[in-house]
């Protein structure tokens, strides 16, 4: 039953779903992400990325250091759309 453990809290992705993604061909964090939505939530993988790397390494026998991480993008933390509003335009 340990495979019911939630790995990505933002998107509620379980360990079993991640293992299934790896069996479907995922060999990188982005590969798992595209198949399960893990890392797509509010924290953008800050919590689960390391865990996913380790699961991929365990399932594929690769060295954890060789697993490609999630492709990092702006913003570093969430920002509101309103931040871009024209100040003088109001």
């Amino acid at each position: 039953m340990k495979n019911d453990v939630i790995i990505c809290r933002c998107q509620e992705v379980t360990e079993q779903e991640i293992i299934d993604a790896i069996r479907d061909g995922a060999s990188t964090v982005d590969g798992v992400k595209r198949r399960t939505r893990a890392c797509m939530g509010l924290c953008q993988g800050k919590t689960c990325e390391r865990l996913i790397e380790r699961i991929i390494a365990r399932e594929t026998g690769k060295n954890p250091a060789e697993i490609l991480p999630n492709n990092a993008r702006m913003p570093a933390r969430p920002i509101t759309v309103g931040l871009f509003r024209d100040k003088e335009g109001e």
Partner: peptide, 28 residues
């Protein structure tokens, strides 16, 4: 991603949907 493009897109988003003002962007 470039700031120039993000700026144009976000301004247009608020222009058509003012209620987006307080919605958080999590990724470009």
């Amino acid at each position: 991603n470039t700031f120039e493009a993000i700026d144009v897109m976000m301004k247009r988003a608020i222009r058509f949907f003012p209620a987006l003002e307080n919605v958080d962007i999590i990724r470009f």
